[in-house]
């Protein structure tokens, strides 16, 4: 029997690659994004990718897409935004939008899909967070705060539903690995820097390996991201000093 996956953020980056890999493996893929031309590129010549234009910040729209998809075995929630800006200067509507998409979007996707998985006693819920949730850096306050909320939410859910047959993963790639935030060229010119990251394919490989081992929660793909999380735990002052220097405007 064909399995169904729901992939958000499927128009580009990690979400697009996740949708294409699942389609290659003969899954039925419901590919969700707000970017319709991007969705069409992802679904090129792939009759088992079904595209749906949907904003994850809209709980009703997410519920409708999930209801139409039927029983979903795997959710890959990669939709997210991450505009960068100084904490005090970033416009409030932009901050609210980040929280609505990154945090509440995750809540909407989980509420639309996890109950069915729990009822069936099986499923895989892959939520993309960010290394920024562990290690905020200057100009990433809104995104890092929203992703930290995603981590807390995922960890709480994971504790509430352990042993019920659903694998829950919270994936924290370094910012350079996508989905977001990626500094714009102007921001890079202004001195923002992003670490060289793990290729998107390697991030998804790490997710696959983790799903093959039952019961894990966090997936931190790549040696750089893992080293950063370790540094945060054991040498937080040193890491902060390094990040401040690395991201200081020159």
């Amino acid at each position: 029997m064909r399995r169904t996956a729901l992939v958000t953020g499927a128009a580009s980056g990690l979400g697009a690659l996740a949708a294409q890999r699942l389609a290659a493996a003969a899954w039925d893929v419901v590919a969700v994004d707000v970017d319709e031309p991007g969705l069409a590129r992802t679904a090129l010549r792939s009759p088992n990718i079904h595209v749906r234009a949907c904003d994850v910040a809209d709980s009703g729209a997410v519920a409708a897409v999930a209801a139409e998809a039927g029983p979903v075995h795997r959710v890959v929630h990669a939709a997210g935004i991450g505009p960068l800006g100084p904490g005090l200067a970033q416009p409030l509507p932009e901050v609210e939008r980040v929280v609505r998409v990154d945090y509440l979007g995750t809540v909407h996707v989980v509420r639309a899909t996890l109950p069915g998985m729990l009822e069936r006693g099986r499923g895989e819920l892959v939520l993309f967070s960010s290394l920024g949730a562990w290690v905020p850096s200057p100009r990433s306050s809104a995104h890092s705060a929203a992703k930290a909320a995603v981590n807390a939410y995922a960890e709480s859910l994971w504790m509430e539903h352990r042993g019920e047959g659903v694998e829950i993963r919270c994936v924290c790639p370094s910012p350079a690995d996508g989905p977001l935030p990626r500094p714009s060229s102007e921001q890079r010119a202004a001195g923002d820097s992003a670490p060289a990251g793990t290729p998107p394919g390697a991030v998804l490989d790490a997710v696959e390996r983790s799903l093959a081992r039952a019961g894990e929660l966090y997936v931190v793909p790549g040696p750089l991201a893992q080293a950063t999380v370790l540094a945060k735990r054991y040498a937080p002052g040193l890491l902060r000093a390094f990040l401040s220097r690395a991201t200081a405007p020159r």
Binding site: A16, L17, Q20, R21, A23, A24, A25, A26, L44, R45, S46, P47, I49, G201
Partner: peptide, 12 residues
């Protein structure tokens, strides 16, 4: 071979 992105669509 896993073809993820190409003119013939995704397939194994």
């Amino acid at each position: 071979v896993r073809y993820a992105d190409g003119d013939l669509g995704p397939y194994h």
